[in-house]
């Protein structure tokens, strides 16, 4: 399972960077989205995949019984998803404005048309 997720994260990074290098506004935004989701998947996988219990100490026990699912990476991913989503929405609007202002989609054209 870890191998599959690792490959998936790698594929997301790869396609994300590829899309960004295409130099078109729309594809750049898609690339950013893929990149941030690749990162989220990586954090999730690096945090350890277990089919384990929730990290709650049983009523009669003194400490947490192993194995348990680590909540920290999940909290991290959750925060990262929220931040990533907000920032992606912002860059989408910004790209839209750039498109309106310049009438171009190709980044080269946007640059040269100043």
């Amino acid at each position: 399972m870890e191998l599959i997720l690792a490959i998936a994260a790698g594929a997301l990074y790869g396609t994300g960077f590829y899309m960004m290098l295409r130099r078109r506004l729309g594809q750049l935004i898609v690339g950013l989205g893929l990149l941030s989701n690749g990162t989220n998947l990586l954090i999730f996988t690096a945090g350890g995949l277990t089919r384990a219990r929730a990290p709650i100490i049983a009523g009669d026990a003194q400490e947490l019984a192993r194995p348990y699912a680590d909540p920290v990476p999940q909290a991290l991913v959750l925060t990262a998803i929220v931040i990533g989503f907000g920032v992606l929405a912002f860059s989408l609007v910004l790209a839209h404005r750039v498109h309106i202002a310049t009438g171009a989609d190709d980044i080269e054209e946007i640059e040269s048309g100043q």
């Binding site: 941030s36 990162t39 990586l42 954090i43 999730f44 690096a46 945090g47 990476p73 991290l76």
Partner: peptide, 12 residues
């Protein structure tokens, strides 16, 4: 994104 990648690996 790079920073977050490093964070994830570090925590792992």
């Amino acid at each position: 994104s790079v920073f977050l990648t490093a964070l994830g690996l570090l925590y792992g």
